[in-house]
Design a protein around this nucleic acid. Structure first.
Length: 267
DNA sequence: ATGGTCGGCAACCGA
């Protein structure tokens, strides 16, 4: 069965924090059928490698690369195409192999990241998050040039601007919006990335995450835009659309994140 | 009136 999208110059990329791949597998399969992405980049798969649901992707003719661990984290890239030159994790220890996959698909480099959330401002985890962005910046500088076709996607755990969360005033001290973490993120972006979503949509209130713990957050759209698709300038110039998906429910519980989709015309 | 998040995984931790 041929499941690739039939336009060979089109590159469709999706980022989706699934919060457990095994629980969300029907939603992921529906996402593949609906959008026929060239690269589906997943975060928080929460599955060890020996339990990765290979058979389900094999049955649909997809290739996959993944790195997981017990209980936490986990990333994967799913594609109907050959997945080349795969690397896991950052260059130096701790590599965090279950937070970063680099792979080449259709001549485009893809870096899929699950950035540490950071807990609270005074915690060691927050400092680790700030350092993680610095280390990621070095990873990009060592491996890529700004004129290469490179897509950086994932759950960045940062709302870059006030338009990217429902209550900026009340979240100045939040680990996903504090000025320090926004600066750490923007330092990486400034290596040569364009926010592909913002290239296509300047409206506020466009979110990809709603907190399970806040009653009615979905209904009242009290969300955050934490899941991003960025591209180096030459590739971003070729983007044709970028939008936040309505997650297929399929009678299941939805993830607290929803997919973000971008399309590039490589021709 | 009460109790109201998930997921993983086995008592709580992380988000």
């Amino acid at each position: 069965m041929q499941i690739a999208n039939d336009q060979k110059d089109i590159m469709r990329v999706i980022t989706f924090n699934v919060n457990s791949l095994r629980v969300r597998l029907p939603v992921v399969m529906e996402c593949l059928r609906l959008h026929r992405p060239d690269a589906l980049c997943l975060q928080e798969t929460k599955v060890q490698d020996h339990d990765f649901p290979k058979d389900d992707f094999d049955a649909e003719g997809y290739n996959y690369v993944f790195k997981g661990e017990k209980t936490y984290n986990g990333v994967a890239v799913i594609s109907p195409h050959e997945i080349k030159n795969v690397r896991f994790g950052l260059a130096e220890e701790p590599k965090d192999s279950s937070r970063l996959i680099k792979a080449d698909i259709k001549g485009v480099s893809i870096v899929n990241t699950y950035v540490p959330q950071g807990a609270f401002l005074e915690s060691k985890k927050y400092q680790y998050k700030l350092d993680w962005f610095q280390r990621l910046g070095r990873f990009f500088k060592e491996n890529f040039e700004p004129d290469e076709p490179l897509v950086w996607v994932g759950d960045m755990n940062v709302a870059p601007n006030e338009a990217d969360l429902w209550n900026p005033e009340g979240n100045r001290e939040h680990v996903c919006f504090h000025e320090d973490v926004r600066k750490a993120f923007s330092n990486v972006v400034q290596l040569g990335f364009v926010d592909v979503f913002r290239k296509h949509c300047d409206q506020p209130g466009q979110y990809s995450f709603w907190d399970y713990r806040q009653r009615g957050s979905v209904e009242r759209n009290r969300g955050w835009r934490l899941d991003h698709i960025l591209a180096t300038k030459p590739l971003a110039d070729k983007s044709k659309s970028c939008f936040i998906d309505k997650q297929p429910r399929l009678g299941q519980r939805p993830s607290d994140h929803t997919p973000v989709i971008a399309e590039f015309d490589l021709g």
